[in-house]
Design a protein around this nucleic acid. Sequence first.
DNA 1: CGCGTCGTTGACACGGCTCAAGCTTAGTGG
DNA 2: CCACTAAGCTTGAGCCGTGTCAACGACGCG
Lengths: 267, 267
Amino acid sequence: VPLQLADSTMLFARTGAWPVSLRRLASLGSLTPVDHLLVKQLKPQTLPANSELTRPHDGDAPSWILLSGWCARVRSVGNSERHIVHFILPGDMIGVGPARWAGDRLAVVALTPVITAEARPLSAVVRLGASEHTGLVEACARAAWREQVYCLNAMARLGHQSAYQRIAHLLLELHARLESVGLASRNGFQAPVTQAVLAQALGLSLVHLSRTLRQMRREGAIAFEPGRIEILRPDALIEAAQFPHGADWLEGATDVAALSRLSAEIK
Amino acid sequence: VPLQLADSTMLFARTGAWPVSLRRLASLGSLTPVDHLLVKQLKPQTLPANSELTRPHDGDAPSWILLSGWCARVRSVGNSERHIVHFILPGDMIGVGPARWAGDRLAVVALTPVITAEARPLSAVVRLGASEHTGLVEACARAAWREQVYCLNAMARLGHQSAYQRIAHLLLELHARLESVGLASRNGFQAPVTQAVLAQALGLSLVHLSRTLRQMRREGAIAFEPGRIEILRPDALIEAAQFPHGADWLEGATDVAALSRLSAEIK
DNA sequence: CGCGTCGTTGACACGGCTCAAGCTTAGTGG
DNA sequence: CCACTAAGCTTGAGCCGTGTCAACGACGCG
């Protein structure tokens, strides 16, 4: 686990600040220099693993922007079982955005030590929808949108896929998400979480998850060491996953015609 | 299946019009007489089963309000398997509301013959957020909220529950939803869908669903005939379900203290 | 009457869970 | 520096929940 943290904080220190969050926002909407300043002025702080960033029924939920480490939205079901609804990765925001949705009411916990920033100013701007920040507002709206898409993906995984398929799909999704903020190499990424955590997100038992991961490794589809995962044969995983893992398939502004034209050109 | 339809249309004819939808909206926000008129002026129409009310990537998705029959948001995963994300019941709206969320991009199909009304005028009013319609706007926002809660419930079911538990939870949820619009008796409701449909929503095979339903009947927990389900021992189902089935647990405006006071008074 | 859909039931295979043990690694305190 | 411990991962054995395949009956419809 410390591997990833070190990595992340190094990046954090090296580039000055905010590379992840700005990269994320910029990929979702066009930011002005003022927007950049707005984000950069937020004060980062570190929190230990297992901190609760948000409680289930928080009156006015705090707003955060995650700079390093992984979090998860969780819901406890039954006796002491916790269900991970979806992961929150560096660059993601928590409770920021104009459109609140039901998932916002679920608790958010830090799965690792994290670096976050209180994003109240950002949230306020976005909620006002100031006209000089349309790019920023749009970026936040899209971020919220994606969060929901990841939930829908999780549903499809849980409802209709085998362990192997679920794992394949989740790994591809995580890779795509991390890649979009520059935290993944071409075919690998740091995954600073325990297998138990992945199991909770996939609705599998720890033992079976471990077994299936090993099978994937045996087949040469993936490789992994503690804290890091390599996707050796993306095609194999995509084949197994059976449905799109990016967030684009439900992207707000894209239309079908354009998409099919695009895919035709690629072929 | 015709049982339920006859029932519903009779209700529809008897009470003049719109009892379901108005009841639903009124339960979510306080409506003015003008709001009532606005809803009543929508023109109802009937559509056959399996109609697609919304396609996956519809440019400007149409708005509907469902008056009779059941619909579902579906997503196809893999080869020819369709996943039912959640059910849309009489009184529910489709594509109405200020806050669009990702689920809106999924296709909606009619599971039965349905009576719907094009709700474009309603949608327009809500999207403008006219100040003389705050109650209506709030009602729509809450409706959208609930839709999301039902998705989250589905996730928890799929991720961490056995067949028996999933069925128990879904039945309770459906009962609660139908009861809130006056379409359920104290312990039963019309369920005009095939077991295959329930299986798709629960992520179970048709055969196993059938078996488990029969087991529940054998135990005296439920009773059913084609098109209708009775919950004979709610306590048994609640015990099995293990987590709340109503939409209240995540309700936007309510605070915990008020809720606990309320439940204390009831006892 | 024949047909298709829906529900039911049985037999069987298999995926995934549970229990349990053993292994590595890192952290802790003597 | 070396036990000692705890956390995480792996592996095996066995069981049970579910999926699959297949056959059948009931019902509604043309």
